[in-house]
């Protein structure tokens, strides 16, 4: 029972991990992109559309990443090149992305004459499989080595991003851009290029989060109304919970995943709470997390100092 619960928590936390990692990459370079929800929505549609027509998981994931990059490109052009307000641009991107996915989603439904369904072959490719040998270990095998391929992908991306941020030269340069673009510029770093690169990669990773929602969580059926459903927003909050560290986001997404599946694992005969309470729970916890973390005062593990402010070299 506990094992099943944790297993489900990992499953539910994975899209959040994608979204959070993507947003951390964006914020670390000094841009607050509130369009995660929209980028996930676009990724969700695009991957489903490609999977529906091609039956290929790789192509579906590439499509999700590409549309995420495209959405982030809109954001980057507006904020980095044209100095538009980051909050407004991000919010607009969320609205745009949601509309984009629902519009084309509806077209896809019309075309299929009913809710489109992914093929059995495809569903098999994304199903949960135990890794040989490792998967046979009791408890640990089930918990860690019996997931669908996207779970491993999410964890791998989060770990790679952490290493990149802390251990590489370009990771250091990128953190400097996020903290103090003026200093980075004076040190000879190309601020614009650095920002574009990481905003785009971040957007792509968010797109993958969307793919997870439509391909795995959706059970192979396109549902136009509730694909992403606030997960993008929770991801943005999780960035703070993870103190801008993708490795910590793994834990954070697990915790939030656990809250979102809690309702199925609390014995109904012992604790009786309306279902709506459980649905609300992750958002309530998010609120608390935001309050508690905003009381934190250390310089490390806090938002990059240059985050949210556009940089213009000649500004006086």
């Amino acid at each position: 029972m506990i094992i099943n619960f944790l297993f489900a928590a990992i499953k539910a936390g994975t899209p959040l991990l994608f979204g959070t990692t993507g947003e951390i990459m964006t914020q670390k370079t000094g841009n607050l992109n509130l369009g995660v929800e929209g980028m996930m929505f676009m990724g969700a549609f695009m991957s489903f559309f490609v999977a529906y027509h091609s039956d290929s998981l790789v192509l579906a994931l590439l499509a999700a990443f590409a549309i995420g990059v495209f959405a982030a490109l809109i954001y980057a052009v507006l904020t980095v090149s044209f100095m538009a307000n980051q909050n407004v641009t991000g919010l607009t991107l969320t609205i745009f992305g949601t509309g984009f996915a629902k519009f084309f989603g509806a077209m896809m439904i019309d075309e299929a004459g009913g809710s489109p369904k992914l093929s059995g072959k495809f569903l098999k490719a994304v199903s949960e499989k135990a890794i040989p040998v490792l998967g046979d270990i009791p408890v640990v095998g089930k918990l860690l080595f019996s997931h669908n391929p996207l779970v491993y992908l999410a964890v791998a991306i989060a770990i790679l991003c952490t290493l990149y941020l802390l251990k590489t030269r370009s990771g250091l340069n990128m953190r400097a851009v996020g903290e103090n673009p003026g200093a980075a510029d004076a040190a000879g770093i190309n601020v614009t290029l650095t920002k574009y690169l990481h905003i785009l990669v971040g957007g792509g990773i968010c797109g993958l989060g969307g793919a997870y929602l439509s391909l795995i969580n959706g059970g192979g059926i396109w549902n136009n109304s509730s694909v992403v459903n606030g997960q993008g927003w929770i991801s943005v909050a999780l960035v703070i919970f993870a103190s801008w560290n993708p490795a910590k986001a793994i834990i954070g997404s697990l915790v939030f995943g656990a809250f979102s599946v809690l309702q199925f694992y609390v014995p109904k005969n012992i604790i009786e709470v309306p279902n709506a309470f459980y649905v609300m729970l992750p958002f309530l916890i998010t609120t608390f997390v935001l309050i508690i973390t905003s009381m934190r005062k250390s310089k490390e593990g806090s938002q990059p100092a240059g985050c949210g402010v556009n940089y213009f070299r000649e500004e006086r």
Partner: peptide, 23 residues
Amino acid sequence: KLVEALSAADNIILGAKEKGFFL
């Protein structure tokens, strides 16, 4: 023009054109 959250060494090598992907 220093990045407050980074160490002295990180600030010094920042942006320096040197070989190697890793620090």
